[in-house]
Computed example of a mutant assay.
Amino acid sequence: MHRVPEPEHHERHRRFLRAFTSHEPAVRAFVRRLVPTRADADDVLQEVSIVLWEKFDEFRPDGDFRAWACGIARYKVLAWLRDKGRDRLVLNSEVVEMLANESLQAESHLEQQRLALESCFEKIPSEQRDLLAGAYRQNVKIQDVAARSGRSVGGFYQWLHRMRKLLLECIGRELAEEPLS
């Protein structure tokens, strides 16, 4: 059997963990769209995580981790449905397959939108970017952000509306430039 040198093996582990960590929210969202409750999604995602780790030897650092993980998640959801099949509140596997396919397509589009938003957000001058991000922080009072901007609350909301509109237009341009997949 071919033995991978220790440093290379550790680097593959690091890459796997980085990929898993960065894609876990998307895989969780994928599973969540296919099962009825958050607790069910947590149970399925735990099983998906175990299978991903068990299949570590199949992990390709240059591959599409999200697609790989969502493929495993799809099978785990179907197995969960089979096990819960007697429950009247569970969707049948054909409906779940249809939802899974649509969910993967939507996930891909959402990822493109997220990347376009990041690109457009970076084009905004840093002071305005800080104010914009500040308006969406948890437990923040919009009055405080407005005061920091030197605007009244009403003026800040108008500025915020203009910034959202500019971002939306930029995202539209970014997405229009991408080749169709």
Rank of each mutant, 00 (worst) to 15 (best):
F65Q: 02
F65S: 01
R66Q: 11
R66M: 10
R66A: 10
A67R: 08
A67E: 15
A67D: 14
W68F: 07
W68R: 05
W68D: 05
W68P: 11
A69L: 06
A69R: 08
A69D: 11
A69H: 04
A69E: 12
C70F: 00
G71V: 13
G71I: 13
G71K: 00
I72V: 15
I72R: 04
I72P: 10
I72S: 05
I72F: 09
A73L: 02
A73N: 07
R74Q: 07
R74M: 05
Y75I: 00
Y75P: 08
K76T: 14
K76R: 11
V77I: 08
V77A: 13
V77H: 03
V77S: 12
V77M: 10
L78T: 08
L78P: 07
L78N: 09
L78M: 12
L78D: 12
A79G: 15
W80E: 15
R82D: 14
R82N: 12
R82Y: 03
D83H: 04
D83L: 09
D83R: 07
D83Y: 02
K84S: 14
K84C: 12
K84V: 10
K84P: 03
G85F: 00
G85L: 08
R86K: 14
R88T: 13
R88W: 04
L89M: 12
V90C: 02
V90L: 07
L91A: 15
L91Y: 07
L91E: 14
N92S: 11
N92C: 09
S93T: 11
S93G: 10
S93H: 04
S93R: 05
S93A: 15
E94L: 10
E94A: 14
V96T: 04
E97F: 01
E97I: 05
M98H: 03
M98S: 15
L99G: 09
A100N: 05
A100F: 01
N101I: 01
E102R: 09
E102H: 01
E102Y: 06
S103D: 13
S103F: 04
S103I: 05
S103V: 02
L104N: 06
L104P: 00
L104M: 05
Q105L: 06
Q105C: 09
A106Q: 08
A106W: 06
E107Y: 03
S108A: 07
S108L: 04
S108P: 03
H109V: 15
H109F: 13
L110G: 07
E111Y: 02
E111H: 05
E111R: 06
Q113A: 00
Q113H: 00
Q113N: 03
R114M: 02
L115R: 13
A116N: 07
A116D: 08
A116P: 04
A116H: 02
A116T: 06
A116Y: 00
L117Y: 12
L117I: 08
L117V: 04
L117E: 14
E118H: 00
E118Q: 11
S119A: 11
F121G: 08
F121S: 09
E122G: 09
E122R: 15
E122K: 15
K123A: 10
K123Q: 14
K123G: 10
I124R: 14
I124T: 13
I124E: 06
I124A: 03
I124V: 15
P125L: 14
P125V: 15
S126A: 09
S126Q: 14
E127H: 13
Q128H: 13
Q128W: 13
Q128C: 11
R129Q: 00
R129V: 04
R129F: 06
D130T: 14
L131H: 04
L132W: 15
L132M: 07
L132E: 02
L132K: 11
A133F: 10
